[in-house]
Amino acid sequence: MQLTINRIDTRYVLDNEGGGPWLVFIHQLAGDLSVWDQMAGYFRHGFTVLRYDLRGHGESGVSPDSFTIDDLADDLAQLLDKLGAPSAHVVGLSIGGMVAQKLAINHADKVESLTVVGAPAFIPEDARPTFARRAASVRERGTASIVEATLERWLTPEFRKAHPEVVEQIGDTIARTPAEGFARAAAAVSRFDARDALPSVKKRTLVVAGQHDVGTPHAASKLVADAVPGARFELLNAAHLSPVEESQRFSALVAGFLRDST
């Protein structure tokens, strides 16, 4: 299904067999809503589960202009409005975790609880050129050129060896991501900084990190938990995509957190 959000055609999938509280999953950079397929299957009987493709990802349109993480949070707020959701439990992975933080900061009325997965509180200044280089490389050579290196960062060697079919699907999603969509989103990530506003977040917050995440070290994720009053921090035996590698532990962790939040 598609809706036009802030002039961008946006794909979303709604699973509402349970007709319960709204639960939104936001995917990673160079990903799409399919990364949450397993979680949607788990939670759809007790929640109204919303997944969607960020601008320039999956089947959503590419933004003609540059944008910020705040703009992506505005996109989600408007999507919730158009779907008639008064508020939602929000789970975001990687760039999705940054969007989730900004939604809780800028649109607090839309957030019932906040789960931030594999995302920092800010991008250090010395790391910003890395995103600029990736964007430039992808614009020149396409997203297929970053598949191998990205998978090595996202998933542990043990998981990649044991689950080649999952690795192939995630690699295909990376390769299908429009180059300009990736580049504009990478630029937005490079400018992300929520440190000053996180102490104002009053929603129940869970922060999940991967013990082997080299892209977003767990110490960087812990800064989110340290900044949000009363936030809980959990470390899983995974790299960047902990909801994929540790799907059972992740779903149990989120389910327990959501039970306490509803």
Rank of each mutant, 00 (worst) to 15 (best):
R139H: 03
P217E: 05
D53R: 05
P86Y: 00
G61D: 08
D172W: 00
V254W: 03
H240C: 11
D71T: 12
P86L: 07
A162Q: 13
S247H: 15
G31S: 14
F43V: 03
F182P: 02
H163A: 13
T262A: 07
D109K: 13
I123R: 08
P164I: 01
I146S: 02
Q38A: 14
A179Q: 08
H107E: 02
A194T: 10
Q248F: 08
S94R: 01
S261W: 01
M39Y: 03
I69F: 10
P124G: 02
R204N: 13
Q78A: 09
P64Q: 09
V49L: 09
G181S: 07
R153C: 05
D37V: 03
A185L: 10
V35I: 15
R11V: 07
F257P: 07
K161G: 06
A231W: 06
D70A: 15
S247A: 15
S221T: 13
E165F: 04
G58D: 06
I170N: 04
R249P: 00
I105W: 06
P164W: 08
D193Y: 13
A183Y: 07
T68A: 05
W36K: 09
H45P: 00
D109S: 15
S94W: 00
A239R: 01
V147K: 13
V224I: 04
D75K: 06
F257Y: 06
Y42G: 00
G46F: 05
E158S: 14
F250C: 02
S87P: 06
A187G: 14
P64D: 04
D65E: 15
E152S: 11
R191H: 12
P86N: 04
H240G: 02
